[in-house]
């Protein structure tokens, strides 16, 4: 670690991870000063709850950015997988165990992701535009052919899942907190993705493709297979995030989730992933998610009215990506 710092002293102190971490700490400090109750187990558990779905999405989106693409369809994948699974379960086996329900949703998500995968990996279509297209195809299909009604009578096992907690209790101040098992899903996704990215040839190939597509082909990486995997994996993660979202919210709402994609990409980009591909870390992504969640939930605590939430997130994106971009531009001008 020290060697890396020695090698990239500038890179470390101006990296997005550091920048975002500093902003988060500052945010928490100001929040605690203005409201001492802010810094509590309750807040932490609330924020953690709120970041499960966004966090899983963000990890998927980061993976796509690393591979050199961009995906905006994952929210539609999530909502489709979740809703179809719920409808299927209610229709055929309402008492289906929760893990089976989850598996089906993940599988459906992977299948929808595979459609993106075919279009991008096989036909080489531009990723932003393809996924904009599949976003509306998936959602349009769901709402037209599967259903457009909110379902609040979920299969009992899904409701049961939301009640499964790792820890719960009441603080001395009398406020209630709980840490659901769904958090474990996020942890699981983080560990699995870390393992794939850092420890497997497949993961390194994802970085390699993002770094240079042409070189990857020449070295003999099966570029199509790797890209296909990326979109299938993202789809699977979306399926998981979708079913968790429905279980935790105790409602399968076919109109939910879509619209979140920009916040997710904002979080990932804040965390230092670059649109050109090849760069992105899990730490950065999680920090980015934490910051977005803080802004979405606790803006009022630092004295900014919540109607300014969009402006704040927008400014964060502009500043958070603008500073490194500007520095890079200056450095390039200087070196030349």
């Amino acid at each position: 670690m020290t060697r890396i710092i020695k090698l990239f002293p500038k890179g470390f102190f101006t990296s997005n991870e550091t920048l975002v971490a500093v902003v988060i700490i500052a945010f928490c400090a100001i929040a605690t000063l203005s409201d001492p109750l802010f810094f509590s187990v309750t807040t932490v558990s609330d924020l953690l709850r709120a970041s499960i779905v966004l966090g899983i999405f963000a990890i998927g989106a980061m993976l796509v950015l690393v591979s050199g693409g961009i995906d905006v369809s994952f929210t539609a994948v999530a909502v489709s997988a979740m809703y179809m699974t719920t409808v299927f379960s209610l229709g055929f086996w309402p008492d289906m165990p929760w893990y089976l329900i989850f598996t089906i949703s993940i599988f459906l998500g992977a299948c929808l992701g595979a459609i993106n995968g075919v279009l991008i990996a096989l036909f080489g279509l531009p990723t932003l535009i393809v996924t904009l297209g599949t976003l509306s195809v998936f959602r349009g299909f769901l709402l037209t052919f599967v259903g457009s009604e909110r379902i609040s009578a979920l299969p009992p096992e899904m409701r049961g899942f939301s009640r499964m907690v790792i820890a719960r209790g009441t603080t001395e101040g009398g406020s209630f907190y709980s840490l659901p098992w769904a958090v474990a899903a996020l942890v699981f996704v983080v560990v699995l993705t870390w393992f794939i990215l850092q420890k497997t040839v497949l993961g390194r190939s994802i970085f390699a493709i993002g770094g240079s597509l042409e070189s990857a082909r020449r070295v003999g990486i099966n570029v199509r297979a790797v890209q296909f995997f990326v979109y299938v994996y993202v789809g699977a993660l979306a399926g998981l995030a979708g079913i968790i979202h429905a279980s935790m919210g105790r409602m399968a709402d076919p109109f939910s989730l879509v619209g979140l994609e920009l916040s997710v990409i904002a979080a990932v980009v804040l965390g230092g992933a670059r649109l050109i591909g090849g760069y992105g870390t899990l730490t950065g992504t999680l920090l980015g998610v934490a910051l977005i969640i803080l802004v979405q939930n606790s803006l009022i605590v630092v004295g900014i009215p919540s109607t300014w939430q969009s402006v704040t997130i927008g400014m964060l994106i502009l500043v958070g990506t603008g500073i490194p971009a500007y520095q890079a531009k200056r450095a390039a001008a200087k070196a030349a």
Partner: peptide, 9 residues
């Protein structure tokens, strides 16, 4: 993307 959020915001 960022400025769009700002304008809407």
């Amino acid at each position: 993307l960022g400025s769009g959020l700002v304008f809407t915001g």
